Simulated assay, not measured.
Amino acid sequence: MAVPFLWKAAVLVEKHRTGLLAVSCAGLFGANLSYHVFPEQTFKLWYQCWTKGQPAELSEKLRSLFHDVLEDVGVKSMNCYQPFAAFGFHPVSAGIPWLPAGSLVGIPANFTSTVEDRQEIVNRVVVINGREVDWESKQGLALKEALLFSPEAQKFAIAREIVYLQSNSPVVYAALPPACLAGTCLSGVAVKQLLGLYSGPRVLRGIYNITIAAVGLVGYFLAYDAVSHALDYRMDRKAATISKDYARGGVEFYNKILSRNRTLRTLLGKQGEKIYAPSGNLFPRYWFRLKHAPYTSRRDLIVNILRVPQA
């Protein structure tokens, strides 16, 4: 029963492939862009930091810092970018500035503390591997030092997210899956016609279709990683070239991330050795994928920018 149904479905797809491809591509694009179109109702709910059962509020100090970064980046419509308190250790962002909902930038709680003011970070409970971190232990002191950023490093990290939104990167990411789907389908049909497989055995066409789907999926993963790496480097370069202070902050930011990851590698034991490399970079989750550019190469990029006299 299942085989005849599959053949009928395949015939139906062949008959209406152009319409189905258009609908699928539009659906993929809309699904990937949905939380950027409505960031307040989706993205913020996911990344919002909570304290005592209530959404955490950003301090006036961080709001002022965020406003300064907007001015340094050269944002004209500042009302299109709104900050909020996010959990985690890195700034996050979503939204499209020129849409009515605007954009959101999540600033992590550890940004409340700085190298000069360390009190806030030690007042927080951090549990790793089921145990609370002792801030006075050797590893606790190393982790605390890695979580404290200077104002310049904080500005660089926030500027990266603003540049990400300003350059319409969410649209680029959303357009990638439908582009790969359309490319795979169209090239698959063209090759099938070229080889004359439409008049060949059904089994052969089925094997060919499965092969094309697998190749297209691998191609999407590789294209996604390549685009992600290119955007990572682009955001770092734009943020670091705002001024020398931002560039120095970028070097500090990535050095602290690498130091934090090395500390987490020790604290997490065997699990940490699977996630973090001895250098502090992340190990690929899958053997052929590396979603983001290595932290060491991103830091080295900024170091090279600092060496240029006119940087």
Results as ranks from 00 to 15, higher is better:
Leu147Gln: 10
Lys144Ile: 00
Cys180Trp: 09
Leu143Gly: 02
Ser137Glu: 08
Ala182Leu: 10
Phe149Arg: 10
Glu145Leu: 11
Val133Leu: 07
Gln139Gly: 04
Leu176Asn: 14
Phe149Ile: 08
Tyr164Pro: 02
Ser167Pro: 00
Gln139Leu: 10
Ser169His: 15
Pro170Trp: 03
Glu136Pro: 00
Asp134Cys: 01
Ala182Tyr: 02
Ala142Met: 12
Ala157Phe: 02
Asn168Trp: 12
Glu152Ala: 15
Phe156His: 05
Val163Cys: 04
Glu152Cys: 04
Glu145Ser: 15
Leu143Glu: 04
Pro178Cys: 13
Phe156Trp: 04
Ala179Thr: 14
Tyr164Ser: 08
Leu141Met: 12
Phe149Met: 12
Ser169Asp: 14
Gln139Thr: 09
Gln139Ser: 11
Gly140His: 04
Asn168Gln: 11
Ser150Gln: 11
Trp135Val: 03
Glu161Ala: 06
Tyr173Gln: 11
Val163Ala: 02
Asp134Leu: 01
Ala146Gly: 07
Ala142Tyr: 00
Lys155Ala: 01
Pro151Leu: 02
Ser167Asp: 13
Gly183Ala: 06
Pro151Asp: 05
Trp135Met: 08
Gln154His: 01
Arg160Tyr: 08
Ser169Pro: 01
Gln139Lys: 07
Ser137Met: 07
Tyr164Lys: 06
Ser137Val: 04
Lys138Arg: 14
Leu148Gly: 01
Val172Trp: 11
Leu141Lys: 15
Gln139Ala: 09
Trp135Gln: 04
Leu181Asn: 03
Ser137Thr: 10
Gln166Met: 05
Tyr173Thr: 06
Pro151Trp: 09
Phe156Asp: 05
Ala157Gln: 06
Leu176Gln: 13
Lys155Ile: 01
Cys180Asp: 04
Pro177Met: 12
Gly140Lys: 01
Ile158Ala: 03
Asn168Phe: 14
Ala182Ser: 07
Lys155Thr: 10
Ala153Lys: 04
Pro177Cys: 11
Tyr164Glu: 01
Lys144Cys: 12
Ala182Arg: 00
Tyr164Leu: 09
Pro170Asn: 09
Val171Arg: 04
Val171Gln: 00
Glu145Asp: 12
Gly183Pro: 08
Ala182Pro: 08
Arg160Ala: 04
Ala157Arg: 06
Leu141Ile: 14
Gly140Ser: 02
Ala159Pro: 09
Ile162His: 03
Asp134Glu: 10
Pro177Arg: 09
Gly140Val: 00
Leu165Phe: 02
Ala182Trp: 06
Asn168Thr: 10
Gln166Asn: 14
Arg160Glu: 09
Glu152Gln: 13
Ser137Ile: 03
Leu147Pro: 09
Gly140Met: 07
Lys138His: 12
Leu165Lys: 08
Leu181Met: 13
Gln139Trp: 10
Phe156Pro: 06
Gly140Thr: 06
Gln139Pro: 00
Cys180Thr: 00
Val163His: 07
Lys138Ile: 13
Gly183Asn: 09
Ser169Phe: 09
Ile162Val: 15
Ser150Tyr: 14
Ala153His: 04
Val171Pro: 11
Glu152Leu: 13
Ala179Asp: 01
Ala153Met: 05
Ser169Leu: 01
Trp135Ile: 07
Ala179Tyr: 10
Leu181Val: 13
Ser169Glu: 12
Phe149Thr: 03
Ala146Cys: 12
Ser150Gly: 05
Tyr164Ala: 00
Lys155Val: 01
Pro170Phe: 10
Lys155Gln: 11
Leu176Arg: 00
Ala159Leu: 10
